[in-house]
Design a protein around this nucleic acid. Structure first.
Length: 579
RNA sequence: UGGGGUGUAGCCAAGUGGUAAAGGCACGGGACUUUGACUCCCGCAUUCGCAGGUUCAAGUCCUGCCAUCCCAGCCA
């Protein structure tokens, strides 16, 4: 179908790694880096140490672009200081977590361009050590076994404005606490019978300090430790210990953990851990016209409102990948947004800009017609055919070239013809000269319509001496349009995407989210055509369909027999009809 | 009548007492153009949530106020 002599270098541009990015010098500066610099300075808490961070996802869902920001910060910060970043599954709750997410998470992080070397861990690896620290707290009189029910705990915790009251079990003797805790571990009690609580301060203004539960009984099989344990540590207790055990120097997390920091520090101080990590919080990423919470994403998937976790309209990394987002663009987006403590909502236009910027430099150009109408070159003989060579990239000669064919009957975009155009319309209308990109100049001579007045065929004649598309002497051709040879054009399906939600802030809208969905978030074009080159080119980063946008083959549904393209993002369009 | 944060342009975001408040996105205008793309130029906060105060000098320091986000899981 396609010529074998084509210079096919659609994948000329490799992904560059984040490390190479750092080396090519992005100047990044924000408060976390300032803190680290202080810690590294003489007399600082990290003086002489190698910076060590971690990314600690809970394996209970797929990663989204909000996680990407955290990943870029965690791994990126380590890279910046020539330090290390661990990947750790925070699997302390067997009720919610599952091994099936683990591989997906690792895959997505690798895809984003980061690597944790041999430092892949599970929080559950440390259950024994954590248990030891809990016994230490009991021994120090800093933890007690409590018999209050969940309701009682809630009732005695107090409210935001009133202090809590001590549990009646708070002063249980150390030996008794130890005995009970060991029997909790031994499985002598049913779920919920006892908890282990830290003994801190029931009157604290910080709710987290009101004798928080640090161990609960759950006779539940854990995805890794099986039935070894029937007591599991809570996040607030487990996390600082995990960090300390791994010698994390800086534990970077999101803002909602800010008021957990006193608790974090309390455990670090009161358990004889091998290192003293510092927790620093930053604002998580939000983007308008979408939702980021796992709960809401899950609802969309489970209700079948989208096509799985990798639906191209979703902000999941799998969705973005299927949509055609490059790791480079996502990293760039995260970095350029900066790191601060301002709860912010970034304009999705900025994300799109980052993608265009990347793809403009690297994506091979091709022609695709989304909404076709026939263009007949009336002075070009029926049956004649010729071939043109077009560059794969207008600004980069090294990107190679490929061939396209031309004949009497072509396919053009329906809106590139108007019988009665507004002023400054540079495309086809009776009498106007237009360039068929890469082929020649034609003059529009009219059109044929069906009984209902719909344009069925546009008519034009080519201007001799304009082969390749050079302007005829003395004339300036303002309009250039894309086209396909009807004979060789390959039919395909094209999917156009728009915001999943019709409102800017779905989270802040009181209406039910079903009402907020954008009914036009997906448009399927079944009568679209592309160059035959695309059947075999297989560009990993997709193509720019000239004058349209960037498109990538769908990683589920496309095949050489039935091509399916997703529009990753449209081109900027500054054309405004004068009315 | 709790605790912890945050307020610099439509959106991000620098700024750490001293000549004119970075930069990017968006937006508007122009040049160039075989993509109405790209690229390139120009414009876009007399003012930093508000009100006082300190100072020769305040977005930066002080006081008060306002707005807004997070916290009452045996979730993370």
């Amino acid at each position: 179908m396609t010529s074998t002599s084509q210079d096919n270098r659609a994948n000329l541009y490799p992904e560059i790694t984040p490390k190479e990015e750092v080396e090519t010098g992005n100047e990044i500066s924000h408060f976390i880096l300032d803190f680290i610099d202080e810690d590294l300075a003489p007399g600082g808490r990290s003086e002489g140490m190698r910076i060590h961070t971690r990314f600690p996802p809970e394996p209970n869902g797929y990663l989204h672009i909000g996680h990407a920001k955290a990943i870029v910060i965690d791994f990126g910060t380590a890279e910046l200081y020539d330090g290390l970043c661990n990947l750790r599954m925070d699997d302390t709750n067997p009720e919610k977590e599952d091994e099936s997410y683990v591989e997906a998470i690792k895959q997505d992080i690798h895809w984003l361009g980061y690597d944790w070397g041999d430092r892949f861990y599970y929080a559950s690896d440390y259950f024994e050590e954590m248990y030891g620290y809990a016994e230490e707290l009991i021994e120090k009189g800093l933890a007690f076994v409590c018999e209050q029910t969940p309701d009682e705990i809630r009732d005695t915790r107090g409210t935001l404005t009133t202090p809590g009251t001590n549990s009646p079990w708070r002063d249980r003797p150390i030996e008794e606490n130890m005995d009970l805790f060991r029997r909790m571990r031994a499985g002598e009690f049913p779920d919920g019978q006892y908890t282990l609580r830290a003994k801190i301060d029931m009157t604290s203004g910080n709710m987290n300090m009101r004798d928080p539960v640090i161990y609960r009984i759950a006779h539940k099989e854990h995805h890794r430790t099986g039935n070894t344990w029937c007591i599991y540590p809570m996040y607030d207790f487990a996390h600082p210990l995990e960090d300390a055990i791994e010698h994390i120097t800086h534990s970077l997390c999101s803002l909602e953990f800010e008021d957990h920091r006193p608790l974090y520090d309390w455990f670090i101080e009161n358990c004889s851990v091998p290192s003293k990590p510092r927790q620093i919080e930053f604002a998580r990423l939000n983007i308008n016209y979408t939702v980021m919470s796992k709960r809401k994403l899950r609802a969309l998937v489970e209700e079948g409102l989208v096509d799985g976790w990798d639906d191209p309209r979703l902000p999941t990394l799998r969705g973005l990948r299927r949509r055609g987002y490059t790791p480079r663009a996502i990293r760039d987006f995260c970095e350029r947004n900066g790191v601060s403590k301002v709860p912010s909502v970034v304009d999705v236009k900025f994300l799109e800009y980052c993608l265009r910027e990347d793809l403009n430099k690297r994506a091979p150009r091709a022609m695709g017609v989304l909404d076709p109408v026939r263009l007949t070159i009336t002075n070009y003989p029926e049956g004649k055919k010729e071939t043109f060579v077009v560059d794969n990239h207008p600004n980069d000669p090294d990107a190679g070239s490929h061939e396209i064919t031309f004949s009497r009957h072509l396919l053009i975009e329906r809106d590139d013809f108007m019988e009665d155009p507004p002023p400054k319309y540079h495309r086809l209308y009776p009498g106007n000269l237009v360039r068929l990109r890469g082929a020649c100049i034609v003059r529009c001579t009219g059109c044929k319509k069906d009984a209902d007045g719909n344009v069925k065929e546009v008519l034009a004649e080519y201007i001799t001496g304009t082969r390749g598309g050079t302007s005829p002497p003395g004339e300036k051709v303002r309009g250039t349009i894309h086209w396909l040879d009807e004979e060789t054009a390959v039919p395909c399906e094209i999917r156009l995407y728009d915001h999943l939600f019709a409102v800017e802030d779905p989270d802040g809208d009181p209406r039910d989210y079903h009402e907020l969905l954008n009914p036009n978030s997906l448009t399927v074009l079944t009568d679209a055509y592309v160059e035959p080159w695309l059947v075999t080119a297989h560009s990993k980063i997709g193509y720019q369909f000239m004058r349209q946008g960037y498109f990538i083959e769908d990683n589920h549904d496309s095949s050489e027999e039935h091509l399916v393209f997703n529009r990753s993002v449209s081109l900027r369009d500054s054309y405004k009809p004068d009315m």
